[in-house]
């Protein structure tokens, strides 16, 4: 007879409980760092520039970056599974062009919106299917998606197409005005709604948890009987959908469709996600972090504007921040091991 009740239990809880204390903190470190950075930047702006503390500055961060926020949320899901989606910028171009073209052809807005979202979702679905079924690297598959989407946009029309549809122009003007000059646009509210839904899905749905599981260890997830294929394809579909929604928002705020829209958006989205503390290898991070990441990018641009600096300073600053946060990620994961 082997007595098992005593020794092993003492063996194992010892080291475990010792480590328990700092561990939960480690998961929040990146998000907290981003938050403090945001506060520091805001304080810097407030001290250095007149009018920086005006409430419109903060609200405009959301209004101006609504499309990026939506795209970055989709990207968050993809990166949480350990993948990447390079096609989002091109999907913005494609969807804005398609929307503008259809509206010009006299289609009603109520039809155009679902069609455009469907197009984005289907492209994502296709990329996800190629990634999953043929084990093609996400990097390459979404690169193909990027070429395809941008190419289709250019084939449809190489010029900027103005949108005159009433619905479009009217929602572009929709805003909640707090006081004169201080408002939040309807599109920003749409973006925030997307954020809220995404946060709930990630924390409280099986799909969301499966996303984390796949990012942690896809092989294990498969052996644990999780629907890895469905989840992975779902994530890219979601990202395609978000990018299409981002494209719609872009076309609404600019009231135009153009194949040149969204150039480099994939980089901004990835940067926002990384600065927001989502681990690039997958499995760890929060939508809230991504929101903070987008706000940091927006804040950089705002400060560069206030300082009337050239826009390349913003690129440099984003590069430096990326570096800092990536090193931080490195340190945190190293400690966890």
């Amino acid at each position: 007879m082997i007595d098992v009740s005593t020794t092993p239990a003492t063996n194992k809880t010892g080291p475990a409980s010792r480590r328990r204390t700092y561990r939960p903190n480690a998961q929040y470190i990146p998000v907290l760092a981003t938050l403090s950075l945001l506060i520091v930047m805001y304080t810097f702006g407030a001290v250095s520039y007149e009018n920086f503390t005006h409430p419109s500055v903060l609200l405009n961060l959301f209004t101006n970056n609504a499309f990026l926020l939506v795209v970055a949320v989709g990207m968050t899901f993809v990166i949480l599974t350990g993948g990447i989606d390079l096609s989002v910028g091109a999907v913005i171009a494609m969807t804005s062009t398609v929307a503008a073209t259809l509206l010009q052809a006299g289609w009603p807005a109520g039809v155009v919106i679902p069609v455009v979202l469907l197009v984005g979702g289907v492209l994502g679905l296709g990329m996800g299917a190629v990634i999953h079924f043929f084990k093609v690297e996400p990097f390459i598959a979404t690169l193909a998606g990027m070429f395809l989407a941008r190419g289709i946009a250019l084939l449809i029309n190489q010029n900027s197409i103005p949108i005159t549809n009433e619905f479009w122009t009217s929602i572009a003007e929709t805003r909640i005005v707090f006081e004169p000059g201080v408002y939040i646009s309807g599109m920003a509210l749409v973006a925030l709604a997307v954020v809220a839904v995404a946060a709930v899905v990630l924390a409280w749905s099986r799909f969301g948890r499966n996303v984390y599981a796949i990012g942690g260890n896809a092989d294990s997830a498969l052996l644990m009987g999780l629907p890895v294929g469905r989840t992975r394809i779902g994530v890219y579909t979601l990202s395609g959908f978000c990018a299409a929604l981002g494209g719609l928002i872009y076309s609404i705020t600019t009231t135009s469709g153009y194949a040149g829209h969204g150039t480099g958006t994939e980089l901004d989205a990835i940067a926002a996600v990384v600065i927001g503390g989502v681990l690039l290898t997958g499995g760890s991070g929060y939508v809230l972090g991504t929101v903070l990441g987008v706000l940091v990018l927006g804040m950089i641009n705002t400060i560069v504007n206030f300082a009337s600096l050239n826009s390349w300073w913003a690129r440099m600053a984003i590069g430096v921040l990326l570096f800092a946060f990536i090193v931080l990620q490195r340190l945190v994961t190293r400690k966890a091991k």
Binding site: V130, F134, E137, A141, M146, L148, R150, G151
Partner: peptide, 21 residues
């Protein structure tokens, strides 16, 4: 511009061709 679509097709075809599955 259409070469972008071409490239997309080439990428897909190649990836499929090189995909063991």
């Amino acid at each position: 511009e259409a070469t972008l679509v071409f490239k997309a097709v080439v990428v897909v075809v190649l990836c499929l061709a090189q995909s063991a599955t």
